[in-house]
Amino acid sequence: MTQFMFQTPQALREALGKQQYIASDEIATILFLSNQLDKPLLVEGPAGVGKTELAKAIAGATQRELIRLQCYEGLDETKALYEWEYAKQLLYTQLLRDKLQETLSGITTLSEAADRLAQEEDVFFSDRFLLQRPLLRAILSEKPVVLLIDEIDRSDAEFEAFLLEVLSDFQISIPELGTLSARHIPLVVLTSNNTRELSEALKRRCLYLFIQYPTLEQELAVVRLKVPELSADLARQAVELVQRLRKMDFRKAPSISETLDWAKALVKLNASMLDENTLQTTLSILLKHENDLQRARKLIKQDQPLRDERRINRWPEDR
């Protein structure tokens, strides 16, 4: 019932294209599979290759609400799942004081009063006072949603363990209310930058998609789509330079989002060609470390082709 309207990966791919997301066959196929199998999708890859963007695009393509949970160190259940709204509970007890006295009137012993009060306990631990956090919201939503759990590798190991119940059975246990099952199974996308190993248990429950830096043609297509004002020639030159920079051993290689920022900057500056001056002034949009910047500047100034230095790479070069 929660499966979306696309019958084939190709249809999904076109729909993503309409959301201005250029998906490769691999991305479309695996995303399609993840939906058909009702399995969460774990997306890994270098920073800035469009992992989060993918979740947004799929939400747009299926016209579902996107619920986002940004992970960070120290994130716990009360911020991810639910919290009782203590202040509101307190307020209600104050306001309902008269009513309470009425309920308890005519009772003489303490234990009897406690019993009577216990009957009304449900009022205070009901949905009314439950503050829904992203996970609970995704589970209880009336309509199917897309749940994005962003940068899961930043959260603690125990939070990961806590996610397991949500991801495999799509249900949440709340001690006071019992187990809440999902009305619609959400489409779950987890992203990770691989700053630490995720647990096997979590990986087992997900499908795995690794997004690599795009090829020249793919990246060019993205730039042409997102920054149509940039002339075709200039766009190609710019993307070629970025691709060359990526091959170098920088502390942080420029990502697609940085390429886009740069392309936009070139438009704003009315640049007609990539001359040295333009490059020197705008290069800081691509490279964010002073060392990298200086090295790149030096290399461009000498106008020597950037050497393919041996690269200490977090990610496999090619697959």
Partner: peptide
Amino acid sequence: QMALRSTLVKDFHAIP
């Protein structure tokens, strides 16, 4: 191949 890979391999070191 993609179907097998996305279900079996969960670690980019293992992709090669």
